[in-house]
Design a protein around this nucleic acid. Structure first.
Length: 479
RNA sequence: GGGGUGGUGAUCUAGCUUGGUAUGAUGCUAGCUUCGGGGGUUAGCAGUCCUGGGUUCAAAUCCCAGCCACCCCA
């Protein structure tokens, strides 16, 4: 028996989660702490996310580029809040061969500084704006203790977009627009519902005026930050002297944004959709969308069945469906069923004597276990079915996410529910850093997200400190 | 930052208390038989017992340090 999933999702979420990522072949550990390996099955899921985002970015006129891995200390240190936020977790290069470097070089923890050093040379006039650049890369943040597959690693695969505008208004609109693209990739591609909104003062990006966020509710009532988008205002343009001559012939500092989504988004998808048998992948990202398992009882009929199975596969290929025919004869059908359950393949087609005889295929859907039969001549229905699965998975997840949230205005209840992770709590809040610190201390939870829409206030007063509340906010633990 | 648990063929694991030839299963290779939810069988292959140091006639086993993973607390 190959080692299937030994831990139940409901018993031990993180144990189960690690198990699924390793056993499915998505990821593996490497010789270096916090630097895992993304194996083909996991990386292909990421590639589908990249593909979708590149298309959306291009529509907005964002161009891809690539900036250096290493940042001189003097440049990294230019924006004071920024350096303060990142210093504790920067990895440094101090030697070239045997020789000590004159100035040590940071391995980028994020690229604002090295990119804006170039931007200051490139931007001279309002005619150079907006400048919309993205890069796909990895960043290194030296987490000292807990590292977790996809959730908290030292090397993070992501994209970081860095846009420059003439006005504050454009910059804020851009930061929000990107958050919506992230919401789309989560909801439409990964079938994971999100909460999106603003970060609190304490939780915002070092050096940002405002940080917008896309968060996902996990089965244990935590929230995972999948993507963030920052309105940097003029904080960096002042530090890096990024100035332009405006339409009235005056020198102005530019307004900037930066935004990123990482492979952590995949962690959210695994946790939301997976079950005790392994991964459950939404069709939009599944490396294999349909797997065909030939069932051969009588060796004399083997040839006929395989010919038919291959025919079906070719028809699916022609429809643009990612189909795989597993005709290995060294594994039994039962073994294959379990294997493809673990891999989360959305649709499994069993093809044996019965199907070959009636020119049909027997289908089993991974996400709800339901069975179906398709006629060969109506095979196109399988494409529709994949679409149905995608939207049904999202609807199911949305329903379950909405049940996790509870609006609370009583302080004792607020503390109790957060301490036990009984609910994700939504409450009226004052937004003060001091108040957030105390909440964290008492419950272990922090504010995750402040909804952007003008919502009706749950209460006039802050649920925790009783001061005047300025908005509603979601609170939970996080990874 | 503090504390804890674990690391044995590719994988999971017994052995560790009480030091003395490394246990079983999965896997892999070659057959035969099977195949509609992890099938059976025969033969073979497969191990720096995480790394380094110490104690000892002798270390997977005891001691120390490190690495990796996981858990709890701040």
């Amino acid at each position: 028996m190959t080692d299937a999933i030994k831990t139940k999702k409901s018993d031990d979420l993180i144990g189960w989660y690690n198990n699924v990522l390793i056993e499915s072949g998505m990821m593996d550990f490497s010789a270096v702490k916090g630097f895992p390996v993304y194996r083909p099955y996991g990386y292909e899921i990421w590639e589908r996310i990249v593909e979708y985002l590149n298309k959306r970015f291009r529509e907005l006129g964002v161009k891809n580029a690539y900036f250096p891995l290493l940042i001189p200390e003097s440049i990294l240190s230019k924006e004071s809040q920024h350096i303060k936020g990142f210093t504790p977790e920067v990895a440094w290069v101090t030697k070239g061969g045997d020789r000590d470097l004159d100035e040590r070089l940071a391995i980028r923890p994020t690229s604002e500084t090295i990119m804006y050093d170039s931007y200051s040379k490139w931007i001279k006039s309002y005619r150079d704006l907006p400048m919309l650049i993205n890069q796909w890369n990895t960043v290194v943040r030296w987490e000292t203790k807990e590292t977790r597959l996809l959730l908290r690693g030292r090397e993070v695969l992501w994209q970081e977009g860095h846009c420059v505008f003439e006005t504050a208004k454009e910059a804020d609109a851009n930061a929000i627009a990107m958050t919506k693209i992230y919401r789309d990739v989560m909801e439409k591609i990964l079938a994971v519902p999100v909460f999106y909104g603003m970060k609190s003062e304490a939780e915002k990006f070092p050096g940002a005026e405002k940080t917008y966020t896309v968060e996902t509710a996990t089965p244990n009532n935590f929230m995972i930050q999948s993507a963030t988008s920052h309105n940097l205002g003029q904080n960096f343009s002042k530090a890096f002297e990024i100035k332009f001559i405006d339409r009235q012939n005056n020198w102005q500092y530019v307004y900037q944004t930066s935004w990123g989504i990482s492979m952590r988004s995949i962690a959210a998808m695994v946790m939301v959709h997976g079950d005790d048998n392994g991964l459950v992948l939404p069709p939009a990202v599944a490396p294999i969308q349909v797997v065909i398992i030939p069932i051969v009882k009588d060796d004399k009929k083997k040839e006929k069945i395989l010919v038919y199975a291959l025919e079906i596969k070719k028809k699916l290929d022609a429809m643009g469906i990612r189909a795989h025919l597993d005709d290995r004869d060294d594994q039994s059908p039962g073994w294959k069923f379990h294997q493809y359950d673990l891999l989360g393949v959305p649709i499994r087609l069993d093809i044996g004597e019965r199907e070959e005889g009636s020119r049909t295929v027997s289908a089993k859907l991974r996400f709800d276990g339901s069975k179906d039969t398709f006629e060969e001549k109506n095979l196109i229905e399988i494409a529709d079915k994949l679409g149905d699965i995608q939207s049904q998975m999202f609807e199911n997840a949305r329903l379950s996410a909405s049940k996790k949230v509870e609006e609370i205005s009583d302080k004792a209840e607020f503390i109790r529910k957060l301490k036990k992770d009984e609910k994700i709590v939504k409450a009226a809040w004052c937004g003060r850093e001091e108040c957030e610190g105390k909440i964290k201390e008492e419950t272990g939870a922090i504010s995750r997200c402040i909804p952007l829409d003008n919502e009706k206030m749950i209460s006039e007063k802050c649920v925790y400190c009783g001061e005047h509340a300025i908005y509603n906010a979601y609170f939970s633990h996080t990874y």
